[in-house]
Amino acid sequence: MVGPALSRRSSSVRRAVALVCALVTVLVLGACGEGLSPEFKDPVAAAPATDSPVTVTGAADVPPVLEYEAPLTVTHDRSQVVWPGVGEVLTDGDPVLLNMYAEDGRNRKIVQDTWVASPRLLRLDPADVGDQLYEALLGQRVGARLLVVSTEEDTLTEASGTMPLVLTVDVLPTRASGTPVTLAEGEPQVRTGKDGIPTVTVPEGDPPSELEVRTVVRGSGAQVEPGDLVTVRYVGVKWSDGEEFDSNWESGSVLTALFGLGTVVDGWEQGLLEHTAGSRVLLVVPPALAYGGTDSPLADETLVYVVDILDTRSAVAADNSSGEGTSAETEEG
């Protein structure tokens, strides 16, 4: 096995400096509980009048912003849908890909922030995500944003007791979802198993000398732009014998990398830009755009990748959250 398709060049790159403004969705937890439409799922009772309200703002492709007065008063754990999803329904035991942002309600210190590196691939099971988040997520759809306010054991300080925790959760897809596109005869063919994992069949004959890019599934999400943090699942095979040399499907992980600035191989840089989140893309990458000229065992190989683009977001937006990240691979669980 060879590691993910990271560039042989340095990963020290400058951040993009553009941030696209988007529609802001606002929810005041506890103040708007009775006004929810029937399709909103509210698994936990509305907040008591004695609890402090929490406001969530931000669009789907930027980190959420929490507004509340600290120290936060929480007497009752609760969760609320900020907006519903429109994708697949989450059922017990499903893999779930989550962007999570959490603050300590006592002082607004950041407790968790996956926006700056990589969303977490977990299993929808109480043992993996906890009882309250399990109940909040069960039955929701991909694309939903949830707000969870709870009291948790204080593990951040030496003091015993509990702390108020304010958590937002964005549910991302775990595989491509969109309009299938038929590939031409004579090209590598892609099949999808019941578990969603793609397999690749390489045709006989010599490989192309130039990069070839084909859309297998056309998603409807945001386009990959230079400077985006892009989260993918992928499989790679060699054209010469069809042997798989790399995949993060079986390992239960996702790869998040900074695109367009030299952090992944040139074939990915050129081939995935301007494709949309939700897409599955076939890349036939000649050695010059992969590992040619290196001491890699793949140096002379034309490589065939199938890449599911799960999420793409501005690295500037991530920087505005709490920190920075260039590439990361996170495993399920």
Rank of each mutant, 00 (worst) to 15 (best):
E329Y: 07
C21H: 13
V129I: 15
T276L: 13
W249S: 03
A159Q: 14
E329S: 11
T302K: 03
L133N: 01
D154T: 05
V237S: 00
G236F: 00
C32E: 15
V307T: 06
T182V: 15
G221F: 01
D51E: 09
G130M: 05
G271E: 01
P173N: 05
T312L: 02
E329F: 06
T330H: 10
D241H: 04
T256L: 06
V181R: 09
S177D: 15
P287N: 05
R106S: 13
D92P: 03
V169L: 05
T302V: 14
R145H: 07
D195N: 14
Y291S: 02
V232D: 01
V62R: 08
L36M: 11
R123Q: 13
Y134E: 00
D42R: 14
P287A: 03
A31M: 09
L273D: 00
T263D: 05
V96T: 00
T215C: 08
V171H: 00
G236I: 05
G325N: 07
G293E: 05
P198E: 04
T55H: 03
V200G: 06
T168A: 02
L29S: 12
A22C: 14
A49P: 04
V2A: 13
A127H: 10
D206G: 11
E135Y: 10
G236C: 11
T114I: 05
V54C: 03
P180N: 05
F245A: 00
D42T: 15
G143W: 10
G227V: 06
Y101R: 11
I309M: 02
P64E: 04
L229H: 05
S10Q: 04
D92W: 09
P180F: 08
Y101H: 10
R15I: 08
E301W: 02
V24C: 11
E69K: 10
T174C: 06
V304F: 04
R218W: 11
P207K: 01
P164N: 07
Q80K: 06
G130Y: 01
P173D: 08
T330A: 09
Q270C: 01
G242A: 06
S177R: 09
S37W: 13
A299R: 14
V96F: 00
G130P: 09
E153A: 14
S10H: 07
E250G: 11
T276Y: 08
E301Q: 15
L261V: 15
Y68A: 11
L156T: 10
A257R: 00
L36E: 13
G205L: 11
A47G: 02
E225V: 10
L122K: 06
D295A: 11
V13Y: 07
S177G: 12
L97S: 00
A299V: 12
S253Y: 08
V82P: 02
G333Y: 13
R8T: 15
G33M: 03
S10P: 04
S296T: 12
T302R: 04
R8D: 15
S251Y: 09
A222V: 15
S10G: 08
N107R: 12
L272I: 15
T57P: 02
V281H: 00
S296G: 10
E135K: 13
R14E: 15
S253I: 09
S251A: 14
R120T: 10
K238M: 14
